[in-house]
Design a protein around this nucleic acid. Structure first.
Lengths: 198, 198, 198, 198
DNA sequence: AATGAATGAGAATTCATTCAT
DNA sequence: AATGAATGAATTCTCATTCAT
């Protein structure tokens, strides 16, 4: 009976797959256990509760984005526009090819009233994302507009992801990313003094 | 005490309030019955199942939008830009002051995998919304761009609503609506031949 | 909305059709009402309860058998063997062509423990049936054997009906009826003094 | 207090007791759980559904008859008539002293329309029973008659069990068994060439 | 009579969680 | 660690029955 220990990363990844497909409320501990090849009862050796598990999943995912995706925005080896492209490329990958890549929105909207703890983490994720884009826009415009552009970019991307999901058409996200990069380039050219920042 | 008939409209409105706050899966028939001041079992006089109830709610809400909100776009007594403003004003009202005005997105994302019937109705709502905006943009640009503009506008509005919701700040939606109207006016001026259409 | 009054006979016949197919416990007042083209609540204008309805159905059916089927056994215009044939013919009709013609057995076994009232009526039916056959056998044998033959005949017929039902083959009942008539004829010939009774 | 494992045999035996008394439809999971000293919800550790439980009960009972009762018919250490007596003795025990020994008939008739899966198993039981008796009758008569005798014997026994049940008199079954054995002996004597088979 | 809304109990089933082994 | 039995509350839904209209 001694099944191979499940390492934490795998546990969280498997839990994420379940939560992505079923959402929070409709995912049962049974589902989560099955996804890990163990019995329901055994889940409680790993996590304190379903809620605690979701919190860990959200944090891990947020940290992953910050460390692996958003970090690109601070890579001085690349020109700012290249960094933006890199972000867009990664987010297209995530949102398009992984079922439920718009995980934070899904869970955030579903549980806002019932499990407010999740909202905190999700808020942080979006703030980080905006902060990251703002950093990039700062190369091509002033602080105030950089913030607005960043916020709008996130709104546009999320809105596109949603249309992509609800209307079953990946075009929405692709077009939005393309537009954002063009706009970024335009800004860079319009304000030549910005070039100095490169 | 058999009397006190709950009329269908009230029933649906009350159900909507519950679904808005708790989502689909976490809303119990108990909750829905309580919201109507009746017992759990009595709900089955009105609806065949929870799923059937949600379908009716979604359809009623979609029809309401089409008849009451989107219809403004076809009101020839107003200039196109005024119609857009009217749409924006109404949607701000809905999204901001009613908890969960982004109902279609919430439910759509939560139940996409588990109850695909809902997705059909939600899809129709978004297609109608896009069609409506496209009609307005046709006054100020060509067909192809009108479509793109409409799709982008919906994406931006939805993205903004989500940020508004998740970051607890109504500014996102307000700013997006303002931007959309400015952009519309700019288009109208840039292409003077469009004025004829007014 | 004033539907034509349902006369008692129709009501009972329709109830019987439902009970035959679903048994007692699984037949709902809803089912019984639908079979009569009225609403559940309206059933209570006709009957006091589901149990009372079943009692009435059982009694009506028992009375029908006594008056219309078993009565043949006392028809002095026919030779005893012809009366037996008539009974066999009628029972084949009932058991074979009407779904659940073995109604008394079905209901008797299903509800013996839970609704003992039914058992009383059913008992009477079988006692009447045996009494009837005993009357016929009295023409061809002594009292004691006539009783035993009658009891065995009922057992054989019921057993055959059950096999017919459970093994989906009408042959069982047909063969049993044929055998009973042959046996009766044999008895008549073996004991010539019985002929006097004819 | 998680311990006290109920072994499968006990579970099925207890379920059988409940089903015997109440039938299928009127037996609730609550009843079935109580009979096992556990809570309603805990039943679902052992069985997938009420239907699945009944299927297992029916199969277990059928297998028990085949292995423990019908098997006697193939015991070459006994003369055929002794084997028949043994079968009769065992079936009297089962049908008379256990409430609802005519379980297959009860359930078969009650659920024929509503849960056809049960009918399959019940059919097999009766086919096996007939096959067994036919094997015995083959010692004293030809194939064709052996089959007919076997079928008739099952019909007579079942019919007697039903009368025994509905008229509350064990005499019916006892007399039928006695008659069957006498008839078997008569056949053996009538056809002396059959003696060789002994 | 007939309706149909309401009731309240109870049906089957699911679920997060606990805990002895 | 893992198991798997048990819990008890909750879930969706059904049912016989009542009763104002």
């Amino acid at each position: 009976m001694p099944k191979a220990k499940i390492d934490r990363k795998t546990l969280l990844r498997n839990a994420l797959s379940v939560f992505k497909v079923k959402g929070y409320s409709a995912s049962s501990m049974q589902d989560l256990a099955s996804a890990n090849g163990i019995l329901k009862g055994s889940m409680y050796h790993y996590v304190e509760s379903k809620e605690a598990l979701m919190i860990e999943v959200l944090n891990a995912l947020k940290d992953h984005y910050v460390a692996k995706v958003f970090a690109k925005a601070y890579d001085d080896d690349l020109a700012p526009v290249e960094r933006l492209k890199e972000l867009a490329r990664r987010s297209e990958e995530i949102f398009m090819y992984e079922e439920g890549g718009d995980f934070f929105v899904n869970i955030g909207l579903e549980t806002k009233q019932s499990v407010p703890v999740f909202a905190e983490i999700i808020k942080t994720f979006f703030e980080e994302w905006i902060r990251t884009l703002k950093h990039l826009y700062s190369f091509v415009t002033n602080e105030k507009e950089a913030m607005e552009k960043a916020e709008l970019a996130v709104a546009e991307i999320e809105g596109s992801v949603i249309l992509m999901r609800l209307l079953d058409d990946p075009m929405y996200l692709q077009r939005t990313n393309k537009k954002l990069i063009e706009d970024f380039n335009r800004l860079a050219l319009e304000n030549p003094e910005n070039k100095l920042k490169y």
